[in-house]
Amino acid sequence: MKKHIIDFEVSSNEEVGNNAILMKLHCPTPLPEIKPGQFVEVRIDNEPNVFLRRPISINYIDKKANEMWLLVQKVGKGTNKLGTLQKGDTLNCVVPLGNGFDTKAAQGKKVLLVGGGVGVAPMLMLGSTLKEEGTEPTFLLGARTKNMLLEKELFEQTGRLLVTTEDGSLGEKGFVTNHSVLSNEKFDKIYVCGPTPMMKAVAGYAKKAGIDCEVSLENKMACGLGACLCCVTETQEGHKCVCTDGPVFNINELTWQI
């Protein structure tokens, strides 16, 4: 897939709770082909304390509006700067990067999409793509409390939504791996994105249950192009770049102790 450097125009940039923002970015040219699970490297301008680009996963592609959506948690200087962008500002992005999820592997299968925290971001695009390809997605999303669950309505519109919260304020109480659906129903494909402990817990469940499982990693990254070799993860075949060999890996490729 050809990569591009594009100056997107901010169509809107809104606080969506849990210290996160949803940025809708209009592409001045027709959007390039982008797969769910791919990401962009955004350049942070006018912030002298930020030197490198920031890798951000793609939340959704609105083909009609020719917009790319980024759901970003404001955790550091770079992401906080993104929160200050206004409608009409430009955002320089290198896009699309990474391998993306294997959606072909979902065909004819009962599919579960698990997301935690801001890791729900790529699941919206994955779910809507699967739906277009004829697979009905079930989302299982975890959050600390009710107010921290991002894009609830959008997920409800896209597929069946199951929720766990740690305090029980919405859905079932506990972690995603505690949800009753995992013991009551049999899935045969799982996709996960979220904090590493959550991904490992879900991967462990999938491995035990013999379910094919893909996880999306978010290692610290510089170039995003497979050049600097900073973002590597351990795999069965040695170090691999999360930016180009990933960010999505089948759990069988990794060396996780699960």
């Binding site: 030197f51 290692n219 070799l229 900073c230 590597v232 993860t233 170090h239």
Partner: peptide, 14 residues
Amino acid sequence: GNPYPRLAETPQGM
């Protein structure tokens, strides 16, 4: 090569 993490961002550098 070395184990991850291999990168730290620093003021105007890495």
